[in-house]
Design a protein around this nucleic acid. Structure first.
Lengths: 343, 343
DNA sequence: GCCTGTAATGTTATCGTTATCAGCCAAGGC
DNA sequence: GCCTTGGCTGATAACGATAACATTACAGGC
């Protein structure tokens, strides 16, 4: 540590010297708190601007024992899904005066744990995690840190702290009932990373509840979504003979559709295709997918609001499950005369 | 500020008390620096783990006058493009012992400026920006901060600090020559946010250099990429009568293709469709797009390496332009007997 | 003119960590 | 036995900001 008296050529001391005031007055002016005459404040702000002075957040965080910062972790950002959730959350959080720090876990609990640990070292005001399945060390780590934590996307009745998400089992059951009513009898599911995706597992459990038995599944090496859907579809068609295939999301469903076309199958006559999440791709397809629309933006906003309330000590619902809605399309047989409510 | 003597119930003091040593010894043990006997080190590490002690990064950053942190800004993360670049960069940077903080600018220079300012307040070791067109205040701000800065994706011969990117003008010219040789004569371009996307502008300049005149352009309200491509295509077909349409990327090109099919146009006979970036979608399309493959991963790795060298004071090339490659597909007429080299 | 109240400003100590330097102790050389 | 030498370890003072408290200046009431 340099033992020079104090570097007054940069930072808040330079601004203070230039303005002929103490650093405390500069600090007050920069933060816009009371206790500085408006003439001085304007002069100080102008000098700070001219000198390109940017306050040192580390010093501020240290002085205040925590940072105005919310850490957010999502699995990835390769389609609209988490981007939509994020957009809803970040607007709300930033309007409340907090910065957000985002990272992706690539569906790896170890990666998530390490990231949470790194973020905790900055003493954030809150944390947001995607999903409810984490590394076993994560829960005690967050509890010890005493930081308000939101789990989102999935629903759990026993969250680490609070939770706003979808009930993926119920979503699976909803779409299963819809499709079963259309007369399909041999369902199958295409996901990614079979056995390590709790959301996919939950949806399949919902499907199985309705059909009353195990359902054929296929996955594919993690690559781009379109390709994974296509590969999964090929595997399924070879090994089983489904008459309706559920996909993890719309992009994969589209990949699957191209394979059906390639094989000369009639959609939706020979085979039904069902996506998930009602992504943007659907708006340009000549035949829109039958899919499930999810309130992603709303989830983000509500999650952020509940978290902010929690941060301010307001007690609210610990766990909230949001409803999804089956969105009929042209890749399943048309509905009969009986009006189907959708969800 | 509380005047209590010192909170020894948590943090490094608790660990020190528990281990019966001074905080200095704990600090050394945690960082793995020399000066602690291995027996003590192991004991301290174990205690720290048991107490869920996470060092305070703000205090460390303050003490060291800068943080082991690299700020990265990208326009968005909605397709593979920047995700690929990021993947290349982050691995390299994290292996060098730095954390990364990422944010998106949504193509807004004001947003970028504010974000850079916020990140600078944490005194990062380096910054990475996407593109070379920034807010006018950005350059002096970064220069004053004296922080190594990499600009990527675009190429500039006069970067803020260093630069690794593509020459989008040359890329436009390359693909223009390829398509011109196939006999197309009335080109048009579909982008997003006409007039505010410097990359699109650069590519169009390349097209115009080859065709020797202005080229019709269309954009669309910023929405999802597929829809924007479709909308732009409709506008163009109504207002002009192009026989080949260049799109900002493959997703938009696919949106455009669905419109061509809708209108009963023959691709590639009546009209050619050209994408950009060789995205994953292409691997499942029954007719792969003619597109341009870009070395995204490589760009990320090289950019990160050059930046790390710069951070360690090693002088290297200030600006590097990476080559792109035209990737022939089924959405432009087949090549004649003359063997086309590609780029 | 003296006193009191209030707003503006300054002084001091502190947040948790680390660089520096000083001290301590055991082993080895004479 | 005395004096180095070198490896561990600890005490202290920063890092840049802010909270709490102290001080000053000035206005108005008596």
């Amino acid at each position: 540590m340099a033992r020079r008296p104090r570097d007054t050529t940069s930072g808040i001391y330079a601004v203070a010297a230039e303005a002929g005031v103490s650093v405390m007055t500069v600090s007050r002016a920069m933060r816009g708190v009371e206790g500085v005459s408006s003439v001085r404040r304007d002069a100080i702000l102008q000098i700070a601007r001219r000198l390109n002075y940017v306050p040192n957040s580390a010093a501020r965080a240290l002085s205040q024992t925590n940072a105005d910062l919310v850490g957010i972790s999502v699995p990835n950002l390769l389609n609209d899904v988490f981007a939509d959730v994020l957009q809803g959350m970040r607007g709300t959080i930033q309007r409340a005066g907090y910065s957000t720090v985002i990272d992706t876990t690539e569906y790896d609990a170890e990666v998530e744990l390490r990231w949470v640990s790194r973020i905790l070292s900055w003493r954030p005001a809150a944390m947001i995690l995607t999903g409810i399945d984490h590394h076993p060390d994560l829960r005690p780590m967050l509890r010890d840190a005493g930081i308000p934590t939101l789990e989102t996307w999935d629903f759990s009745s026993d969250p680490i702290d609070i939770c706003v998400g979808l009930d993926h089992v119920a979503a699976g059951a909803d779409v299963a009932r819809y499709v079963q009513d259309l007369g399909y009898v041999r369902p199958a599911f295409v996901g990614a990373r079979v056995g390590t995706d709790p959301r996919a597992d939950a949806r399949v459990r919902g499907l199985e509840q309705v059909w009353g038995g195990p359902i054929a599944r296929a996955g594919a090496a993690p690559e781009n979504a379109f390709r994974m859907g296509a590969d999964g579809m090929r595997t399924l068609m070879a090994d089983h003979a489904p008459d309706v295939v559920f996909f993890l999301n719309d992009l994969m469903a589209f990949g699957g559709m191209t394979v059906a076309a390639e094989m000369g199958l009639d959609v939706p006559g020979d085979i039904g295709i069902v996506g998930f999440n009602a992504l943007g791709l659907n708006t340009v397809l000549p035949v829109p997918l039958t899919t499930v629309s999810t309130p992603r933006r709303q989830m983000g906003v509500m999650g952020a609001r509940n978290l902010l309330a929690r941060m301010h000590g307001v007690a609210g619902a610990r766990a909230v499950a949001l409803p999804v809605k089956v969105q009929p399309g042209g890749t399943t047989r048309p509905q009969g005369r009986r009006l189907q409510a959708g969800a």
